[in-house]
Design a protein around this nucleic acid. Structure first.
Length: 294
DNA sequence: AGGTCGGCCTGGCAGC
DNA sequence: TGCTGCCAGGCCGACC
């Protein structure tokens, strides 16, 4: 049992890795693993390696040199040479640790690098995380093309681009933001923060947004994500840096998980709703509720 | 074909 | 105190 400062009003459970959390991991881990060789690979959970068996995936990783570590959406991409890639997703509770002081719980993967000079451990309490091999540069492109829209920091991610994405869509704007095929990397936390910044109600019909609102939303998404990266991610429950340290973005949430607290902009009360099946936090004074229509 | 919903999974919490 | 049950939530596939 490690000591943990008792935290008043600490919401549980939570924080899932989204773009800023994955970016934080990749930035920290890349210089520690790039150029190193995988000299042992132990996969302890067949769900992680599926459809390959743990042995098959372990075998494929063995003897590979890590060329580079990158991110696309919420995926971590391990480039292993000869156009082979390990595409890793942390899903709900995945954590990647480098040389952990203590053995963490729920270890699913253990990589030994350079004959034991370094170790990487993947821990994942809820077991949704995955690692799959994608062979070929074109195949990797296709893998992401089928699953992910533009990166929010791509220069083509503009208000006009968003306007084109939402056109004719009747789904709530929050559901659209959470759809990785439309916008890559935004999850529940950053969707709430981005919509608050843009003063748009999460239940607003996507297709009803004006160009000006799409431009504001683009700004909101980028500012929320950049702020999250700057704070090295949010740790409510599971998320940790590669050295086990917590992120700090949860301290900077404007509305997310702040039901009952005053809005930082107008002082009105922050409310919790359910939108697209997700806990959703909103200041309905700053983000006016859409009029009922059909 | 766009939209919605259930399943996967488990720690932690509420409720009794 | 200890047990049960319920919830979160990314992504995928089934369904309408």
């Amino acid at each position: 049992m490690h000591t943990r400062a008792p935290c008043a009003r600490m919401p549980q459970p939570g924080a899932v890795p989204e773009l800023p959390e994955v970016e934080t991991i990749v930035r920290q881990l890349a210089p520690l693993v790039e150029g190193r060789m995988i000299t042992a690979a132990e996969i302890l959970d067949p769900r992680w390696s599926a459809p390959l068996s743990p042995d098959e995936l372990g075998e494929a990783l063995l003897g590979r040199r890590i060329q580079s570590l990158g991110r696309r959406g919420k995926y971590i991409v391990w480039e292993l040479g000869d156009e082979l890639h390990l595409v890793q997703h942390l899903r709900m509770s995945g954590v990647v640790l480098f040389e952990p002081d203590r053995e963490p719980g729920h270890v699913r993967v253990r990589l030994e690098l350079d004959g034991g000079r370094a170790h990487v451990v993947v821990s994942d309490a809820r077991r949704f995380g995955t690692g799959q091999l994608v062979a070929g540069a074109a195949e990797l492109e296709l893998f992401f093309a089928e699953r992910l829209g533009l990166e929010p920091f791509d220069e083509d991610f503009t208000g006009a681009h968003l306007r084109a994405l939402v056109r004719g869509r009747r789904t709530p704007i929050k559901a659209l933001l959470l759809d990785q095929r439309r916008v890559a990397g935004v999850g529940n936390i950053y969707a709430d923060e981005a919509l608050f910044r843009a003063r748009i109600h999460p239940e607003r019909r996507a297709g009803a947004l004006t160009l000006a609102q799409c431009e504001a939303l683009r700004e909101g998404v980028i500012e929320a994500l950049a702020s999250g990266i700057d704070a090295r991610g949010a740790s409510i429950d599971d998320f940790r840096h590669v050295d086990g340290v917590r992120g700090t973005f949860q301290e900077r949430f404007l509305v997310h998980r702040r039901a009952g607290e005053p809005c930082p902009r107008c002082g009105g009360e922050i409310r919790k709703l359910v939108v697209a099946g997700r806990g959703t936090y909103v200041c309905e004074r700053c983000q006016p509720r859409p009029r009922r229509r059909r």
